[in-house]
Design a protein around this nucleic acid. Structure first.
Length: 627
DNA sequence: CCAAAGATGAGGGGTATG
DNA sequence: CATACCCCTCATCTTTGG
């Protein structure tokens, strides 16, 4: 996780570098992929280092920047010499505290068919945090092995690039280099800094010329990256795919980026052929829903998956390819249960759930919520035109339609006495489906009100209302939440098992979907430790907790990073172990509606999934110890 | 008058299904 | 091939509160 984790504070604080940082990641991957055709990658970079002035400290710095302790690195270098960074890395992995999770990562990629050597190399280049980058690098290696070797002479930048990138990637989080990022720094110091980062003087000065004297270090390195990537792309891509030179730097950068993205997709498709594909069930009934006859009451859990504690993980079903395989792999290879909440309420919500709960003797919350639009929103029935065939709403999302759109629809429809012509109907229906609009008057559609969303999702009315929550925030929090009836159905098996109540660790709690589900099931909440970064959401849960006269204790923690082994141990010794670890990690880098950063499980927010795993592992270890 | 919070509107593509 | 769908982000405008 990089320095400014999304778990604390909003992204707004870091506007200035977010985009660049992400792009640099991608550049680095593709660049390194091209400049490193064979197995000498590591040696090569080591050589480049030793030719630099203070090679030993640079090697040390490199590994320290990867998150290893300085003493450890020193020990590893002493044992293995500084020439073979591969050996050093291996040694570090062995005695690192994070060794277990790293070897898990290595195993993960080895399981995908990559050689250990390649995997280690890729991890070394990308760090162990960004598995997507690692995968991308591995895919590039694989592609390069297949295709003709790339000429080395083509690239002037090979000198220590790998290590330089690691150094650079560190700049954002290392406070003592902040001065260099100051756009006011004078030209000489910028030049010096760039060369210190390993770029050639020629590159640095070209970049300064092109970007102007006021450009920041970030802009300059971006430019250099783009120049390098352009070269790399030229070498990699067949001539017909080359784009004409584009003078607009930003545009050009985007072009290169898009090209490489496509390339990656192509590779993944080819590479993924051998892999098993995880299909979403159709209809999406999971192991069964209360309203349909299909039901599965038995399954065999992998040995490693069996609790305590019970755990329950949720995320969007329609994630990019491979994401659910990865999630499942990290959660003890349990088969995900994909369920569409349209079988529980009047709105669709396709989600995947991975849990180790029993699946027999489930029961639903009563009363069963209305399952079509007219029952859920009776006032719309009067105005619903016969040519709108919808009976269910689409997924309730975080944003709602603009007034301008509903106005356009009104104008389009009110021109006609009877039914509008087919093309108008098509347009209106398209927009209604896209924005979940309902008919609230003659020729009048409208987005759902927040309290209607609360009802559809199974929350008490006004659950998110007031207490400092704005309208937009309500939509956002609700859109990011559980459908309570669906989750409650899965959790219902706990009721008989824990008549005295349970201790819950609720990660990424949001507005408390899990807590509300358990409460509505009649499961007593003894202790709830709730981790949620949004203060507004924490207040919502706190208010709900107090007004429902809970007899247990609610502890809220704002930052998931705070929940380390020590803190967990403390909590568990005071309150007893946890019976249930529950949470849905952020989906915004997985969700289809995200136009900008649908980066997969390694995205800035969605990568918090790995914190879920980390914490679950810690709880499991401590629970096993105390048995 | 200003700054900050809130609301608004514009905006693409991956993945599955037929 | 077309079609449907998706726990969305960003820049900009508007409102609020001092």
């Amino acid at each position: 996780m990089n320095g400014h984790s999304s778990a604390n504070g909003d992204d707004d604080d870091f506007d200035w570098d977010t985009e660049d940082e992400l792009e640099v990641d991608d550049h680095a991957v593709s660049r390194s992929g091209v400049t490193v055709p064979g197995e000498e990658a590591v040696l090569q970079s080591a050589k480049a280092n030793s030719s630099a002035e203070s090679s030993s400290s640079k090697v040390t710095g490199h590994f320290v920047s990867m998150g290893f302790r300085k003493e450890m690195v020193a020990k590893a270098i002493e044992e293995n010499g500084e020439e073979n960074t591969n050996l050093i890395l291996e040694a570090l992995l062995q005695y690192s505290e994070a060794g277990s999770s790293k070897s898990k990562l290595i195993d993960h990629f080895k399981g995908m068919g990559f050689s250990e050597e390649m995997v280690l190399k890729a991890i070394q280049e990308n760090g162990d945090e960004n598995t997507d980058s690692i995968l991308e690098t591995l895919l590039t290696y694989a592609a390069l092995e297949e295709s003709a070797p790339v000429q080395h002479a083509d690239c002037d930048y090979e000198g220590g690039f790998l290590d330089d990138f690691s150094d650079f990637s560190d700049i954002d989080s290392s406070s003592d280099s902040e001065e260099f990022l100051n756009p006011d720094s004078d030209e000489e110091s910028k030049l010096l800094f760039l060369t210190k980062m390993g770029y050639s003087e020629a590159e640095a000065s070209t970049a300064m010329e092109r970007c102007g004297p006021d450009s920041s270090i970030a802009e300059l390195t971006d430019f250099i990256c783009a120049a390098q990537i352009a070269k790399a792309a030229d070498a990699l891509l067949p001539p017909e795919e080359k784009k004409p030179f584009c003078t607009d730097f930003k545009k050009r950068r985007k072009l290169d980026y898009d090209l490489l993205k496509k390339k990656k997709m192509k590779l993944e498709r080819r590479f993924g052929d051998g892999d098993e594909v995880l299909h979403l069930p159709n209809p999406m009934l999971g192991f069964g829903v209360p309203t349909e006859p299909f039901q599965r009451t038995q399954r065999v859990l992998p040995e490693a998956a069996i609790g305590p504690p019970y755990f329950y993980y949720e995320n969007v079903a329609l994630a990019p390819k491979g994401v659910w395989q990865t999630i499942s792999r990290f959660l003890y290879d349990i088969e995900p249960e994909f369920v569409d909440s349209k079988y529980f309420c009047a709105a669709a919500r396709k989600r995947g759930y991975i849990h180790n709960l029993p699946i027999d003797n489930r029961f639903p919350l009563v009363p069963l919520p209305p399952r079509n639009i007219h029952e859920a929103l009776p006032l719309t029935k009067k105005w619903w035109p016969s040519w709108d065939p919808r009976t269910k709403l689409n997924c309730l999302q975080t944003c709602v339609a603009s007034a301008r759109l509903t106005d356009r629809i009104r104008k389009a429809v009110e021109n006609y006495d009877g039914d509008p012509p087919a093309n108008i109907q098509k347009f209106v229906l398209e927009q209604c489906r896209k924005w979940n609009l309902v008919w609230v008057g003659r020729n009048k559609v409208a987005p759902l009100e927040p309290d209607e969303v609360e009802m559809l999702l199974g929350f008490p009315k006004n659950h998110t209302r007031g207490g400092g929550s704005s309208r937009t925030e309500r939509y956002k929090s609700l859109g990011n939440s559980f459908q309570v009836d669906t989750v409650a159905y899965h959790l219902s098996v706990l009721k008989d098992m824990f008549p005295g109540g349970i201790n819950v660790l609720s990660l990424f709690s949001g507005i408390g979907g899990a807590e509300v589900a358990l409460y509505r099931l009649g499961v007593r909440l003894k202790t709830v430790v709730s981790v949620e970064k949004s203060e507004v959401n924490r207040n919502i849960v706190r208010c709900w907790w107090e007004q429902t006269n809970q007899t247990g204790i609610l502890i809220d923690i704002p930052d998931v990073q705070e929940l380390n082994g020590e803190r967990l141990e403390q909590l568990m010794s005071i309150h007893g172990g946890f019976d249930l670890v529950i949470g849905g990690s952020p989906c915004n880098n997985l969700a289809g509606s995200n136009r900008h950063h649908r980066d997969g499980l390694e995205g800035r927010e969605s990568s918090l999934f790995f914190d879920y795993c980390r914490i679950l592992d810690l709880v499991r270890c401590k629970m096993a110890e105390n048995r």
